[in-house]
Design a protein around this nucleic acid. Sequence first.
DNA 1: TTGTAAGCGTTATCAT
DNA 2: ATGATAACGCTTACAA
Lengths: 353, 353
Amino acid sequence: MYRPHAAVRDLSGDDVSGQPENGKPPSRRPATSVDVARLAGVSRATVSHVLNGQVERFSAETVERVRGAAAALGYVRSTAGRALVRGRGDFIVLAVPHATVTRVQEVIEALSADIEELGFTVVVHFAGVRAGRKAPDRLHHMIETLRPAGVVNLGGLSEDDMEALRAAGCLVLPRYRSGDPNLFIGRLQAGHLHARGRTEIAYAFTGDRRDDPYGPGRAEAVAAFCAEAGLAPPAHLHVPIEAAAARKALERLVSLRGRPVGIACYNDEVALALVFAAKGLGLEVPGDVAVIGVERTEVGQVVSPRLTTVAGDLPAIVGFFRYDLARAYGGAASRPEPPGLTDGYRIYQGETT
Amino acid sequence: MYRPHAAVRDLSGDDVSGQPENGKPPSRRPATSVDVARLAGVSRATVSHVLNGQVERFSAETVERVRGAAAALGYVRSTAGRALVRGRGDFIVLAVPHATVTRVQEVIEALSADIEELGFTVVVHFAGVRAGRKAPDRLHHMIETLRPAGVVNLGGLSEDDMEALRAAGCLVLPRYRSGDPNLFIGRLQAGHLHARGRTEIAYAFTGDRRDDPYGPGRAEAVAAFCAEAGLAPPAHLHVPIEAAAARKALERLVSLRGRPVGIACYNDEVALALVFAAKGLGLEVPGDVAVIGVERTEVGQVVSPRLTTVAGDLPAIVGFFRYDLARAYGGAASRPEPPGLTDGYRIYQGETT
DNA sequence: TTGTAAGCGTTATCAT
DNA sequence: ATGATAACGCTTACAA
């Protein structure tokens, strides 16, 4: 006889898994729609219909019986069967950049909750160079093997990647052209430095050579601001989060551009590295070197001098993705206006500007 | 006629998704094993066998034809079909604690790479209190709906959670009793403070009230060390990553226990908060207040004073999980000895002790 | 060495 | 208002 579940028993019962086999096998076969149907005295089709909300077409009494039976058996639909018949899974892939974005965890958690509420399962995928430049391949493989309902790009995907995915028949969110938040952030930083009296402005990239999906856009925005304000084009520097290297980078900048100088940083970590590098070089902050970060990390606010930084609030950012998600999958009526991704970004004044 | 794939077309083709329908539908039905079989001139069974590595049983020529056909068609197995027949999916769930573990991202990435190499797909699940105390339910639901091959507990699961999962027939890794790394870390911290001459020792928990899966074990280890060394039981304090609150907590500790005092901290962030709190209170570091963190975050090493901290190296930590994974799924022969989870943890001497 | 056929759980269609 | 059925793609015991 052919028993396809034998493998499952092997896995969870024996020394392969190392699980203790305490008396009876703890993993009895999960209830299926057949079981529910039998218990409720109806057909599998009826079960399926009722449990998928097609309640109108059945007698209240039948509906009740089916639901009762399902609850009694602890029945839960098999994703596998569902996916098989529907041609795609109930997954949403979150493509996260490898880059150092400290608060990315919070964004992921918030989005995950949202997505799961919509009935999907979240698969987080870190897209980064680190694992040997085969990141796009890994993603592509995952897409093919998973056939997800959609991919949410949090910055880990290039335009090419996204296009390839769409070509493979995969829904990719968000589809913004409308307001790259990085442009907004860069402009905010430069504007602030200028408002605080700096005429010499620089942009500090993160130092390690991971892919940095946000930096270029922000640097570009800073440059644009400088041009508009009639300032010299911003110097660029790369700042590793390491004392000696950061000091060297700052030293080079100051010798090149003099002081005072204002530096728009990729994130709070870069900003901190520069603040303490300045200290090491005997430069005043913010007198000689003004510094502004991004993210408003907790450490940035607890050290002295307290960091000036720009950050968006989570609800606004998540709201943007939520809107796209709801539009694509849920009730499109949830919100009439697409929230801008730039909403809620603002300066938090600290002691470094 | 019954066309189950209609829904897929709807999704990826029309305004529901917002994708441009450029000319011909970009998503033609993916190749199935039937297609491969037809092109190779063999049966589906043969295709399945060959592609699952049962190469020995077939003529080299057949194998080649099958592989060629699969490659030519860009065939990739459907997870859905596979999962359906096997009773469980190709997923490994990574249960991550919500708690602030800055380097958790790196661990996730490294583990993901490992796991994917074993042929599984990684699903990251953040288990935390934040989302309204329904975290266990969320996880349980995910387990039921996904029927994953296993769950890797990175600290987000309580013993009860794990037991519940096992009862549901799910493989849960790692099954360590053998050396909770937190005990090792706590002891390392206390031992270092003592070696630096402190006789008054305290343990600083993180301040926010998220679930903190690591703190208790470490505090316990610190207490154990103090008892063995004949020191007073360690004071406990909770340190929010916020200047005023951190200062208040430290002030209270010093008024209670006097100085000098040595503080073993939950992580580098807590340590930094205390270092700058001390500064604000006019206390010397490390003279009056010695501080040691955990994690060796980059910021902790770039600020002044540079943090003394304890950290394990990633390869060792990941290696531990990798061993368990390989034992459960891959070739168990990959490594004879289970690496201890305490391997590779050590003190990094900074300027705060 | 290769093929046949059954069976996994779900859902859309069509018949009752 | 409800049910029977076929189909989704894959794996595997067993027959050839």
